[in-house]
Design a protein around this nucleic acid. Structure first.
Length: 587
RNA sequence: GCGGCCGUGGUCUAGCCUGGACUAGGACAGGGGCCCUCCAAGCCCCUAACCCGGGUUCGAAUCCCGGCGGCCGCACCA
């Protein structure tokens, strides 16, 4: 496929070998090769599909089952309203200006900021164009004039049904499927905070120029969870379990100082020094670190890198990327840990007009002075016509104090929502201040979001499992994600050994193991084949098996062998796959 | 999207500059057979490829153009 020469070769050697192995043994390969290929897409083959699924299962086990969270599954396609509310149609996009002389493309907003020192935030394309001209921004490379900026939106666009005006988008993240269901999910969590909801699924991002095989895809699988907590009670109840754990952080301060190396801080220190702003984020970062450890990626090969303000997604108040060292690309993001605050719920509440606040009960009822707001429906209907229903709902969701203050100061209140601004005058409402007994309050939960790229994790797992021994490949996949668990091999293919091996094969299959039988070629060749596929255990049936019913069990990593009686084999293997060091004990 | 390099069986590659003897060679992998007591042993046989389209030419894997794809650099990666 590709050929690399000279200095490139040594550095990308491992990646190269893995790509070859992946194609040869059926982990993954480029999609649509029959028609010349299409970049940004990969196919998972027989081994890869299972490996990927097992990593997903492991994640679900650790982040959903063990954490007591909920798992849901929502559509890939969503109507435009969802992504307009979430900000993706506006923000999942880049204004690109090309140079009319040299043809280079630039981020128009970045140029404006760099050359004119003006924030381009919130500027429409025409405004951006005007600003670029006004401040005489030129191509930084050749000084040529810039063409009018154009937007490129990375959402995949489609239509829903036969109506071209009914626009839908492929989701760029699974999160919105959770946010739009917040009310129901909170109800299912029996109206308690905190709680978390996870989702695993395909997402689409129409990348401008994807490369790097499984690292940057236009269609990818994301495993993410939204964890909702009370912003007024943001403490992580499980902090004790993790506060002494060390995290390697390359935090904002270090980056601003120009540093590249992370520092090692305990969770407690990181929180005390405000390098991590949300306790729950810290908690899940520890979980994420351990998760990668179990996929074979040690602490030294991963760390968390904070995203600077300009690099963060539009919804995020703080984001750490978990990065892993990969042989070809250096440190690559495999998960993001964003503190999304109440951004998404707030946006969906404003767009839909539905109250998405959670009710939090006080320990004791409190007597408080409080404004109450009563909307005058008839008056509002006269002024706003069709929109009055929505205006009324929005108005009633607004803190009355805010309305009262504005009316007092300016004589009017500007109500924003649904992409419009409505002017509320004193005669539209009745505001009363009274003392009431409150049993609780309504709040918009704050959200932390750990979000993992399953494709990248699958690749990283392969890369970290890859090793060579005596000129052959041994894929030391963690035993709980290996696609084939056990190989059953007759030592030779005669004298009744294959028949005996077939019995053992069926026995183990019946016990629920993923087993493969192989009697082709010499025993050494078959061991080698299984090492390359990452099969942790090989069971060999030999002449002694016929005499005393014991078989040889071979460990892929150490090549150690122990004899186990066939009847005890299932129990032995079960212990092995639960993580016990059965070879050290028995040999 | 720009620039550079590149595209040959399942995988890695030889051949391309200097067009013909290329019915495209090799290694590994795969299938069949012989052999058969533990780490890719050996022997025999077999399967299987010039990215796509156009052009130049008597003749194209080889030269030219376009497309697609890959790698690297720039840009992009909310």
């Amino acid at each position: 496929m590709e050929r690399l020469r000279g200095a490139d070769l040594s550095q990308s050697d491992k990646c190269q070998k893995i790509m070859e192995l992946a194609k040869r043994r059926g982990f993954f390969w480029p999609s649509y090769e029959l028609y010349g290929g299409e970049s940004g897409f990969i196919d998972y083959g027989p081994l890869g599909a299972i490996l990927k699924r097992k990593i997903e299962e492991k994640w679900i086990n650790q982040f959903v089952v063990k954490e007591g969270l909920m798992l849901i599954d929502t559509p890939v396609i969503g109507p435009s309203a969802v992504f307009e509310a979430s900000g993706h149609t506006a923000h999942f996009t880049d204004p690109i200006a090309s140079c009319s002389r040299c043809g280079r493309k630039w981020r128009a907003d970045h140029l404006l900021e760099d050359q004119a020192g003006i924030s381009a935030e919130g500027l429409a394309l025409v405004e951006l164009d005007a600003a670029l001209k006004e401040h005489e921004v030129h191509c930084p490379e050749c000084g040529g004039n810039l063409e009018a900026p154009q937007v490129f939106n990375e959402l995949f666009k489609t239509t829903i049904g036969p109506y071209s005006e009914h626009v839908g988008y492929g989701r760029p993240e699974t999160a919105q499927g959770i946010f739009v269901n917040f009310k129901r999910l909170h109800e299912l969590a029996r109206n308690r905070l905190p709680f978390g909801v996870a989702q695993v699924g395909k997402c689409m991002r129409n990348e401008i120029s994807p490369r790097q095989g499984p690292i940057r895809l236009r269609e990818l699988t994301i495993m993410e969870l939204e964890f909702f907590f009370d912003p007024e009670n943001p403490h992580c109840s499980k902090l004790k379990e993790v506060e002494e754990e060390k995290l390697r952080l390359l935090h904002e301060e270090l980056i601003r100082e120009g540093k590249n190396e992370p520092v090692e801080l305990s969770v407690r220190e990181a929180l005390e020094r405000n390098h991590i702003k949300a306790e729950w984020n810290a908690y899940f970062m520890v979980k994420a670190k351990r998760f990668l450890n179990e996929l074979g990626i040690s602490d030294g090969d991963q760390f968390f890198k904070e995203k600077l303000v300009g690099e963060r997604a539009h919804y995020s108040a703080q984001t750490y990327d978990q990065v892993v060292r990969l042989s070809r690309w250096g440190f690559v993001e495999v998960s993001g840990h964003a503190w999304r605050t109440d951004y998404d719920l707030k946006m969906h509440m404003a767009s839909s007009g539905v109250d998405l606040r959670a009710y939090v009960q006080f320990e004791k009822p409190r007597r408080v002075k409080k404004f109450t707001l009563k909307a005058h429906h008839k008056q509002l209907a006269q002024v706003f016509g069709k929109d009055s229903g929505r205006v009324t709902r929005l108005l009633e969701l607004t803190p009355p104090e805010e309305v009262a203050e504005a009316l007092k100061a300016d004589g009017r209140y500007l109500l924003r929502g649904n992409g419009q601004t409505y002017t509320i005058l004193p005669e539209h409402v009745t505001l009363k201040e009274e003392e009431v007994e409150e049993k609780g309050r309504r709040i918009l939960p704050s959200v932390v979001e750990p979000s993992f790229g399953l494709d990248r994790l699958t690749y990283a797992t392969l890369e970290y499992a890859y090793s060579e021994k005596n000129d052959r490949v041994v894929l030391k996949l963690p035993r709980d994600v290996a696609p084939i668990q056990v190989a059953v091999l007759p030592l030779v293919s005669k004298n009744g050994l294959p028949e005996k091996a077939e019995q053992i094969h069926s026995l183990l299959k019946g016990e629920g193991f993923a087993v493969e039988y192989d009697d082709a070629g010499s025993i050494g060749r078959r061991y080698a084949r299984m090492d390359e596929a990452g099969t942790p255990i090989a069971v060999t049936i030999d002449y002694q098996t016929l005499e005393d019913g014991t078989v040889t069990v071979r460990d892929r990593n150490s090549w150690k062998q122990v004899r186990v009686s066939a009847t005890k084999l299932p129990a032995f293997l079960r212990e092995f796959f639960q993580g016990r060091d059965v070879f050290a004990v028995s040999s």
